[in-house]
Amino acid sequence: MNFLAHGYKYLDRPLFMAGTAVPDWLSVIDRKVRARSRLVAPVVEASNDPQVREIGLGILQHHADDDIFHRCALFQQLEAELSSGFRRFMPDRYDHRPGFLGHITVELLLDATLAAADTSLLDRYYDVLAEIDAVDFEAVVNTMTTRPTDKLVRLIAAFRKERFLDDYFDDERLLYRLNQVLHRVKLPAASDDVIEVLAAARDTLTQRGPDLLKIVANGS
């Protein structure tokens, strides 16, 4: 799951909603900085601070949702279908990109499906993020991570300003964002040819995305 799918149900709980974004934000900052459940849960359990509890519970919700999402048969089916589509343009069997792209494209297009179904949702999501005091937020997150970071404040500011979730509505802009992710994990960019795969995947997620969300909501 991606940012919007993790957080859209919690617009009335700003810190919790922002907490659901923390594991993905940290992976952008430094893949060695992690907020794992085994680190977060004891901090939440020991704290009477509402801010600490809301942020920590949001992080734990992220991990619980991801666990259900990635294990469900429908996600695995869609991931395999998309990976096969990408493989047509990346035939080298040692190329790791088709499987990687199959996985993250399902997640990003699920966000696009959610936002398309409710045209005010993205604006409301970003409005809620604007309520967060990023300095205080970073300080709390640093009590729950494998090591502290001083980059979360800047990332949250950039995340709010750039609004890259808007780019998921367009196949060419989506490919640009996917190539940014490939660059971050040191893999070559995908060619424009794969826009064909993205267009077909968008139709598939429009149909099957609600089923994925129901699976996560039901916890199985």
Rank of each mutant, 00 (worst) to 15 (best):
I59C: 07
A41E: 14
R184D: 11
N2P: 11
P91M: 07
R53D: 05
T20P: 03
F137A: 01
D127C: 03
L108F: 15
F164M: 08
R173I: 00
H6Q: 12
M144I: 11
R163K: 08
L82R: 10
D111I: 10
V44T: 12
T206K: 14
G219T: 06
M90G: 00
Q77T: 15
G7D: 02
Y94D: 12
T105G: 08
V140T: 05
L213G: 09
R202S: 09
S191Q: 06
L212W: 04
A18W: 09
I68S: 10
D171N: 01
W25V: 09
N2R: 08
T206L: 08
V52T: 10
D166R: 14
T105S: 15
H70P: 12
R97D: 10
R147N: 00
L15D: 07
E131G: 02
L15S: 07
R163S: 06
T105I: 14
V135S: 12
A200V: 09
A200M: 11
L74T: 03
T20Q: 03
L39A: 14
I132G: 02
A117M: 11
D133M: 01
L109A: 11
T204L: 14
L175C: 01
Q207F: 13
G58K: 09
T119Y: 00
S120V: 02
K214S: 11
A5W: 09
G56Y: 08
R87Q: 12
A21E: 15
L114N: 11
S27G: 03
A35C: 08
F75C: 03
E172M: 02
